[in-house]
Design a protein around this nucleic acid. Structure first.
Length: 434
RNA sequence: GCCGAUGUCGCCUAAUUUGGUUGGGCAAUAGUCUCGAAAACUAUAUCUGAAAAGAUCUACAGGUUCAAAUCCUGUCAUCGGCGCCA
């Protein structure tokens, strides 16, 4: 959400930004926003005046009653006030709601370096890393690999839970845990603090971090409770500081979040139906930073660098893209995606999303920092380090061997008790010798 | 889950019985003063307003009332007891 004061002072900038984002948004909405805001402020003045009148008269009543004088006339006069005030307050509230709903849908100001483009096809490749792998045999899809090796049981999961749910089994489940532990170690070595958040949060917190109306179809709601399953650890961890004023000395706060994530994937009918590429539940290690505005652009690059470095160590072929205006969404001011090469799908697919949200989330959540007696909104940043289901698919596709086994990336072996290869043929060199 | 108590500024606390528009202590930060420090003094949240000023804030949301920290209802949280449980 943008700060209304900021909009008032930077009208042309805001409109330009909306135009740059294309047809999805209409810059005229800003004019009507300011018009309603003006009405609101005028009415606020009137309501405050009415309230002042009430305060005055009750003060007099208090005074007179202490002097034991007759107050019946004053009370008679005062009786009309509450209704009058209430009527105006209701109008005021209505206007405020209108203002808020417009503000909620206004997109963040984009950074100058965000490329113009209609959709994800026009994201700009920044750089590629690693080498495109070559194979001298016919590749199996990850769906075939998990089936042959009995690493995932989709049938039984569908029996008890439904489509897009899965049992992760045996060596692949170990590999999943290895990825998580490696990811967490990787970040804590960089002085990020590990945080494991609640996996369910209430409505108020969720409204702070995302547009519940739009995201409603992504989130699982607990029946009869004011609770939603989290779609990413970013949500509870960002909402954690809701309504707080942080000390500038504590900033930047660097957190590595870990949680299981739950997503309905309601809008994805038919997409990626097979295997575990797109599922209702997966684990994710996430980087988060809360910082002063003047540091956020440098830290954004740092987050991207961390994720790049991490994927390099996994030995995958991938590229960094600068997400274009048509694909970036309303929250981020700039977003890098990392896309890994999936040889079977013959495509790059998104595995990391690294955003500088500037003050957009902070305004909505009311997170400020205090420096020299002055309060200002902080900046929030987040970046995937690793999301397990997609990373597992990437490893399966890229590290598979002719016999259907899969080589474990070197950096993960120490988290796998030294196992070098997982797969149906038990390799004698595969176990760590004691 | 049941029963009971409690919730006041960053922390502590008084005012709740009997509704009258808050008060005190400590700490922190900034400023004034100072060669420097200590002490002392001033300031400290949010909203509207050019300003003067005004409005709002006693866990949260409602209600009663001219007026609510105080009375009523609901919710949440904390503590204690019982129950259940990895």
């Amino acid at each position: 959400m943008l700060d209304i004061n900021f909009i008032r002072e930077n009208l042309s900038k805001i409109k330009e930004n909306i135009k740059r984002r294309g047809e999805k948004y209409n810059s005229l909405i800003v004019d009507s926003l300011l018009q309603i805001d003006k009405e609101w402020r005028e009415l606020k003045g009137k309501v405050d005046l009415l309230r002042h009148g009430r305060n005055e008269i009750t003060l007099q009543i208090t005074k007179l009653s202490k002097e034991k004088k007759d107050i019946s006339k004053l009370i008679e006069k005062a009786k009309a006030l509450p209704q009058e005030i209430k009527n105006s307050e209701e109008k005021l509230e209505e206007l405020k709601k209108k203002i808020n709903s417009i503000l909620m849908n206004l997109p963040n100001l984009l950074h100058d370096s965000v490329p113009y483009g209609k959709d994800d096809a026009e994201n700009k490749v920044v750089k590629s890393f690693g080498k495109k792998p070559k194979f001298k045999f016919n590749l199996l899809s990850h769906v075939d690999l998990i089936e042959k090796n009995k690493w995932v049981d989709l049938d039984r999961a569908s029996k008890i839970s439904g489509a897009r749910w899965y049992f992760l089994k045996g060596e692949l489940a170990l590999l999943e845990q290895a990825l998580v532990r490696y990811g967490i170690d990787f970040m804590t070595k960089k002085k990020f603090t590990l945080v494991i958040p609640p996996h369910m949060i209430n409505r108020k917190a969720y409204e702070g971090v995302t547009d519940l109306e739009a995201f409603g179809e992504m989130l699982y709601k607990i029946e009869g409770e004011d609770l939603h399953m989290i779609a990413t650890s970013e949500h509870p961890i960002t909402a954690m500081y809701m309504g707080e004023v942080l000390d500038a000395k504590e900033l930047p706060i660097k957190i590595v979040g870990y949680s299981t994530n739950f997503r309905k994937e309601a809008g994805a009918h038919g997409k990626d139906m097979k295997g575990i590429f797109r599922v209702h539940q997966f684990n994710k290690v996430e980087q988060l930073i809360f910082c002063k505005p003047e540091h956020s652009w440098k830290l954004h690059e740092e987050l991207a660098k961390n994720s790049i470095e991490f994927f390099k160590t996994l030995g995958l072929y991938f590229r960094q893209v600068n997400v274009c205006t048509g694909d970036i969404g309303i929250v981020a001011a700039k977003k890098y995606d990392l896309e890994v090469w999936y040889p079977v799908q013959d495509a790059f697919r998104e595995v990391v999303s690294c955003s500088n949200c500037t003050s957009y989330q902070a305004v909505r959540l009311g997170i400020k920092y205090n420096e020299d007696g002055e309060n200002n909104y902080i900046h929030t940043l987040n970046s995937t380090l690793i999301a397990t289901s997609r990373a597992l698919v990437a490893i399966l596709e890229n590290y598979q061997q002719k016999d259907g086994s899969v080589v474990v990336p070197k950096v993960l072996r120490k988290y796998m008790n030294g196992i070098k290869i997982i797969g149906k043929f038990d390799n004698k060199n595969n176990r760590k010798k004691k």
